[in-house]
Design a binder for these strands. Structure first.
Lengths: 335, 335
DNA sequence: TTGTAGGCGTTATCAA
DNA sequence: TTGATAACGCCTACAA
């Protein structure tokens, strides 16, 4: 191991050119002759020079990096959003720091602190299921950098949000079941501190109302919508009378519920029809294939990043809510 | 927006205590009285202080951060490895920077540069499918920091690798098909510049040899093993005579092949049996469920990180190869 | 236990 | 077009 850290001063000494000129050359400044610039760049590569971004960021007070916090990178929806974020950010010359909160408030808080102390120029976040107060965002914003929320709306009055129309999508999903002749529809709901799940629940209730169906609170089962929840909720569901359909606020719970119910001899969709939410790749592949709501994930990443970069450039925190259109994908589980 | 960046000097002035004492207090040094330490910490929080890690890292020449490069974060295997990495790293007081190469050599090279310039203390990487030369790793290592390869072995003579026994797993997977009475087994193979796919192919060939089955090169179909490849390879496969089984070097290709063949009226496993590799979550859920090889993903992340942190601590780059045990999971696609 | 002073590697300003 | 110098925010001998 050579253990050498080449700096601009090493290049400077090696060539007998001042380090300020070396710096300019490495930043492709106009104020260096083409000849010296070429020489410096060549020498830098030969010597194995790699800029120390820490020093550069410290000096310029600009990191050209944005932070991203998602609940889990393994969720297809989030990794697609990240793809959109990275594409937009890289095109604009920004790096991206990806973090996952694992739905934990404490961890989210710590991550915001880490991103802050690394002086990222802005943060894109989809808050954790546990998050219900927001001081940790204030500390970062007071520092002068923008936070933008996506997917899970938050502080609509103060911050920019890029979300989908959950209410409408859920309304349509539920109405789809009603039009298929279902009358006793259970809703698998998520944590109500997230507006997203409130809205999905709201759309469900609203569709029932429109079609004069009875709204029974015991038909609304709340959980974290994990795989395990799908199983335990299915047991509760079997105890309810006359259930003939389920609208789940995500695919994960819907799929594990379907698996469990199939084992118990329930026929899907004949006995109980299902609609999920998210369009996870599995949903197209299971048997029966799952009717679900597809969200414009990649586009959401692009839109969110574009808006964030604009705020970074303008040095302004604004509030604006961008609502994207989801789409109901009808498959076998509701036919 | 307040746009104030609080520094230790602001706290220093505010309290009339020297900034060096403030620094010590914030680093929980022994050499500050409990009383002043408490006062300083309290004031820091009140003033919204957040350490500038850039300055700190620059000064100490230590980032307490490790970089991770994987082909894609959306692949279940990699996100599980990352979970293992994060757990181990956080416990040791390290941050983790996650990057994805998207199987592109150019992008991988750029990412290594970015991690280098951010002075991460070490890098964990599963190289891209395109990667077949390694100068970009040398530049980083010459700087004095360790690189450790996982899953996809690389430079076994120079670097530490944490891998699984692909040869043995593939041997067993193929033998499993042979013992089920299959005699004309196609292998869906990956890019041969990756040792990983060479080994999987080797295990396949070796099992055929052991059981005196003919090895026919035209029965080995090479691709990037993407979803699309599963479809196009299936077409080729239907043109081959007497195929009664497929051993695929990953699940993705196997699953899309199964879907395609089912549409064409092929019965799985009666007409053609399948074994995949990776144990993606979908593989348990599709119909028929896919026999596959499960890898110790989370453990791999933990082991790799532990070894890397040791090298960072010891300031040494060593070569050591740690081989983990995979496991054949028999499901319906091979029964 | 606290203060003083210098430097990590870079870039911006000013001067030559 | 190039060079000299100071400063970004922090940490750490060393001194008090």
């Amino acid at each position: 191991m050579k253990n050498k850290k080449i700096t601009i001063h090493d290049i400077s000494k090696h060539l007998g050119i001042d380090s300020s000129t070396v710096s300019r050359a490495l930043n492709n400044s106009e104020r260096v002759s083409k000849k010296t610039k070429a020489l410096i760049l060549k020498t830098a590569t030969e010597m194995g020079y790699q800029r120390n971004s820490l020093a550069s960021k410290l000096r310029t007070n600009k990191s050209n990096t944005i932070g991203v916090v998602v609940p889990r990178i393994s969720r297809h929806f989030f990794s697609s959003v990240i793809a959109g974020i990275e594409e937009t950010a890289y095109d604009a010359g920004y790096d991206v720091m990806i973090c996952q909160s694992l739905e934990s408030f404490e961890r989210e808080k710590k991550l915001i602190g880490t991103l802050h102390s690394n002086r990222v120029d802005g943060i894109l976040i989809s808050i954790s299921m546990e998050t219900n107060h927001y001081d940790h965002f204030d500390v970062y914003e007071n520092h002068g950098s923008p936070i933008l929320f996506f997917d899970r709306p938050c502080r609509l009055d103060k911050n920019t949000n890029v979300i989908i129309d959950d209410f409408k999508a859920s309304f349509e999903a539920t109405e789809h079941l009603i039009k298929a002749g279902k009358k006793h529809i259970v809703h698998l709901s998520g944590p109500q501190n997230l507006d997203l799940y409130k809205n999905r629940r709201g759309g469900y209730v609203s569709a029932l109302k429109k079609h004069k169906l009875k709204i029974d609170e015991s038909y609304i089962l709340e959980s974290q919508l994990m795989k395990e929840d799908g199983v335990s909720l299915s047991k509760k569901l079997l105890a309810l009378p006359m259930v003939d359909a389920v609208f789940s606020a995500n695919d994960t719970a819907a799929i594990s519920a379907i698996q469990f119910l199939k084992e118990k001899g329930v026929r899907v969709p004949q006995d109980i029809a299902f609609v999920g939410f998210s369009n996870e790749p599995v949903s197209a592949v299971i048997d029966p294939s799952l009717t679900t709501v597809s969200q414009p994930d990649f586009e959401m990443g692009k839109v969110a990043t574009t808006l964030l970069l604009k705020q970074i450039k303008d040095k302004s925190i604004i509030n604006e809510t961008r609502v994207l259109k989801p789409k109901l994908i009808v498959r076998d589980s509701s036919k």
